[in-house]
Design a protein around this nucleic acid. Structure first.
Length: 409
RNA sequence: GGAGGUGUGGCCGAGUGGACAAUGGCAGCAGACUGUAAAUCUGCCGGGCUCCGCCCUACGGAGGUUCGAAUCCUCCCGCCUCCA
């Protein structure tokens, strides 16, 4: 194995700490980096992913990008699929217990995951592993022995457990095993560093403890913040509907980015782009002083995000379309088209064409002035539309478009 | 095993026999204002219809009492607390 050259420590430290929330602890990370520089051995960096929900969104990419930083610096990054831990389910305090996944589902999800992940990570440099490999083999005895390495008191230091215990809410025994299992991964992999979202801090620290317990050098723990979603308040998540999926089409990524609150833009710049922090700070102060219009700054962000997943060409197109549709009130490129037979009442037509979820909703939208036909507002729910050769163009609300061709049977 | 409590619309949370498709808040949708930003204001927010009205479905599930039940009774299910 050839000796690797690593960048200077300070340079590495700066990149790695960008946007990080916790770093336990900086001195130790520095020491590990120095050692790897001397020996030419890269650090082993572990990040676990729960394969239960395979749709990645920008929130996940914050972590992936941090992994990418380690890769850029020449370290060895392990993308660890929690095939075993997914079947325990990370205790969140929420009532919904996650459904137990079959190993087929886990495998299918893992593949979907990998397809999405390698938009961000360098596939050639990424080690993919699955903790089912060792945790599955542990067996009951092994698990009990593992449980013997930790105490209830230490487990109860976790905020979530503590609160639930105080409030007399249930804590199931298997939930205590989750942090242990995750910690055991670090032991097996002899991780130098473990990355995770800030919400994972407890689990990651258990990893440190367990490694010490097993006589290993403890891992350094680095966490990144949870990305705030489109609404500007809640963390980004698919179920809250405030997410941008990695596989969203260009115009969605672009448009959704444009809809975030201005105040959120700086965080996104920090966590989702590589623009130097000094540059971000300078833009921010110019916007706040009124020297720079926030729209343009946000458009650049949107462009950069589209570029990451679809390339520059797609980003330019998305921007052109955005300008045409929203700034100039035009019509998007590819409006879905439907064909229906005969004459229709406006209300029912909207429902039939899936431009409204129900007739009642369609009627409301019409009455509220949200519907236009061929560019002119339509406010009569009972308007009769007759068949004609060219399709009708409907616009519902700000961004829903549809063409409907009415045929005379 | 025993005693008690609780279960309401996407979420939180009122409602304890009729005026309840169910107060209020959040979320969502639409309009105005804009930069498809935020904030703000206004309206909507179970489904269907021939729509100032009517019909259907709905308050954990199944039965029952009643002219009438989210509200009372019985059984069942889930969740919580205390005692053992």
């Amino acid at each position: 194995m050839s000796r690797k050259e690593f960048p200077p420590i300070d340079e590495q430290m700066e990149l790695l700490q960008r946007g990080a929330v916790d770093l336990v602890d900086p001195a130790q990370l520095r020491a590990k980096l120095e050692r790897s520089r001397q020996t030419g051995e890269p650090l082993t960096v572990k990040t676990g992913f729960d394969p239960s929900s395979p749709d990645l969104h920008l929130g996940h990419t914050v972590l992936l990008r941090k992994m990418g930083h380690f890769q850029q610096l020449g370290h060895r990054v392990i993308f660890l699929i929690g095939g075993f831990t997914a079947r325990i389910g990370d205790p969140t305090g929420k009532k919904a217990t996650r459904p137990q996944l079959t190993s087929e589902e886990v495998q299918a999800n893992a593949l979907t995951y990998q397809r999405q992940v390698f938009h961000i990570l360098d596939e050639a440099k990424t080690v993919v592993d699955d903790n089912d490999r060792w945790l599955g083999a542990l067996g009951s005895h092994g698990m009990i022995r593992l449980a013997g390495r930790y105490t209830l008191a230490r487990m109860m230091e976790r905020e979530d457990f503590k609160v639930r215990f105080q409030e007399n809410r249930p804590i199931h025994l298997h939930e205590l095993l989750y942090p242990l299992a995750q910690a055991y991964d670090s032991v097996v992999l002899k991780a130098d560093v473990e990355l995770g979202g800030h919400d994972q801090i407890f689990n990651l620290l258990v990893g440190r403890d367990l490694m010490k317990e097993e006589g290993l050098e403890p891992q350094v723990v680095l966490t990144v913040p949870l990305l705030v979603g489109l609404d500007g308040h809640e963390k980004m998540s698919k179920s809250l509907g405030n997410a941008i999926a990695v596989e969203d089409p260009p115009r969605e990524i672009y448009g959704k980015t444009m809809s975030i609150p201005d105040s959120l833009m700086w965080d996104w710049y920090l966590l989702l782009t590589d623009i130097p922090q000094s540059e971000i700070a300078s833009r921010r102060s110019r916007v706040e002083a009124g020297d720079l219009h926030p729209k343009g700054v946000k458009q650049e962000l949107a462009r950069r995000l589209v570029t990451q997943f679809h390339g520059e060409e797609a980003a330019r197109e998305a921007e052109a379309e955005f300008e045409a549709v929203f700034s100039a009130g035009g019509v998007p490129e590819d409006v879905p088209e439907k064909e229906l037979a005969g004459s229709w009442t406006l209300t029912k037509l909207l429902t039939a064409a899936e431009l409204a979820p129900s007739n009642g909703e369609a009627r409301r939208l019409i009455q509220q002035g949200a519907v236009s036909i061929d560019g002119g507002r339509a406010d009569d729910p009972f308007l009769e539309l007759a068949p004609r050769p060219e399709p009708y163009l409907f616009k519902v609300g700000k961004r829903r478009f549809g063409r409907v061709r009415l045929t005379s049977d």
